[in-house]
C-alpha cells in the first residue's frame, strides 16, 4: 500500500529516521518483522528494500510506522532524499517474529550498528510485556564510533542498562560488542535469560561461537538481499545446520528473518 512520509530526518551522519503514515488496514508488526519499501515513481532502483520495524503506532487518528536506516547504497540514498508528503510503497509486515517470553528474568539485547532498529522495537515490546514485574532488560550496543550509536537515548529509556562498545573507543568499551558481551556471558547462563541479537553477519557468527553448546535461548535477526519478501524468489536463502528442521536452506524473508542461533550454518 501507499504510505505518506510524515518525517524523514537525518539524526546523525548517514542515519535517518523515517516515519510513514499508513492506512488503518496495515497490520501491526510483531517485533522482528520487516516491511518492504520502495519509491512508487521509480523503476530504478526496481526492488523494494527490506527494513526491520523500529516503531509502530496505532491511534484513533492514524497508523504510522517508523524506520531507522543507514544509507548504504542507491536505494537508501534515494530514500533519504524523499521529503514529507512524498509517497512510498510499504508492503508487509513480513517474516517470522521473535519469540517472546513474558516470564523471562534477564532479557539481553545485543546489537551492532543499524541492527539497533529492530532490537529497539523488540525491547519496547518487552518493556510492556514485563511491566508488571522487574525483569531486567540489558542491551549491548556496538558501533564503529560514538556518533554511530544512533538511537541510544531511546534504548536507555527502555532498558535498565545499556553497555556500549566502539571500534575507536570513543564511547564505552574499545572493541567489538561480542568481546564485551563475552566478559559478562556467565551472568546469563540461566534458563530465565533470553538473548536476542541483530547486527552484521560477522557479529552474529561470533555470537554463535560464544553461544555454542549453551542451552540459553538465543534468537537472531538476519539480513539478506531480497527481491520478493514473501518466499517466492528464493533469493535470500541461508544455509541451515542439519537438524534445523526446515530443510537444508531457509528463506530469510519467510522462514526468518528471526532464527534460533543454533540453526544457522555459518559456512
Amino acid at each position: 500500500m501507499n504510505g505518506k512520509i510524515v518525517r524523514n530526518e537525518q539524526i546523525s551522519a548517514g542515519h535517518f529516521l523515517l516515519r510513514v503514515k499508513l492506512a488503518e488496514s496495515f497490520k501491526t508488526p510483531m517485533p522482528g518483522q520487516f516491511v518492504m519499501m520502495r519509491d512508487p515513481g521509480r523503476i530504478d532502483p526496481l526492488l523494494g528494500r527490506p527494513f526491520g520495524v523500529y516503531g509502530f503506532e496505532r491511534s484513533q487518528e492514524e497508523v504510522t510506522v517508523e524506520i531507522l536506516y543507514k544509507v548504504v547504497g542507491k536505494g537508501t540514498l534515494l530514500l533519504s532524499k524523499l521529503r514529507e508528503g512524498d509517497f512510498v510503497v510499504v508492503l508487509g509486515p513480513y517474516g517470522r517474529a521473535f519469540d517472546t517470553h513474558p516470564e523471562a528474568g534477564k532479557v539481553v539485547f545485543i546489537c551492532g550498528g543499524i541492527g539497533v532498529a529492530p532490537i529497539t522495537y523488540l525491547a519496547e515490546h518487552y518493556r510492556s510485556l514485563t511491566a508488571a514485574r522487574d525483569a531486567e532488560l540489558i542491551c549491548y550496543y556496538g558501533a564503529s564510533k560514538a556518533e554511530n550509536l544512533v538511537g541510544i537515548k531511546e534504548l536507555k529509556r527502555i532498558c535498565g542498562r545499556v553497555i556500549t562498545s566502539t571500534d575507536d573507543g570513543s564511547h564505552g568499551f574499545q572493541g567489538l560488542i561480542t568481546e564485551r558481551f563475552s566478559a559478562d556471558i556467565s551472568l546469563y547462563d540461566t534458563g530465565s535469560s533470553k538473548i536476542y541479537a541483530c547486527g552484521p553477519r560477522s557479529m552474529l557468527k561470533e555470537l554463535s561461537e560464544l553461544m555454542a553448546g549453551s542451552s540459553v535461548f538465543c534468537q537472531i535477526l538476519m539480513e539478506e538481499r531480497m527481491a520478493c519478501g514473501v518466499g517466492a524468489c528464493l533469493g535470500c536463502t541461508v544455509l541451515l545446520k542439519d537438524g534445523g528442521g526446515r530443510g537444508e536452506r531457509a528463506r530469510v524473508c519467510v522462514d526468518g528473518p528471526v532464527f534460533d542461533i543454533g540453526d544457522i550454518h555459518w559456512g
Binding site: M226, G235, C236
Partner: peptide, 23 residues
C-alpha cells in the same frame, strides 16, 4: 536441487540478476 550459494540476486539498473540455481 539445493540451488546455488548466496548471494543469489543482485539489483541492476531497471532490473535484477538472479542465479538461484533452480532450487
Amino acid at each position: 536441487r539445493a540451488g546455488n550459494k548466496p548471494p543469489r540476486i543482485m539489483e541492476t539498473p531497471c532490473g535484477m540478476l538472479n542465479a538461484i540455481g533452480l532450487e
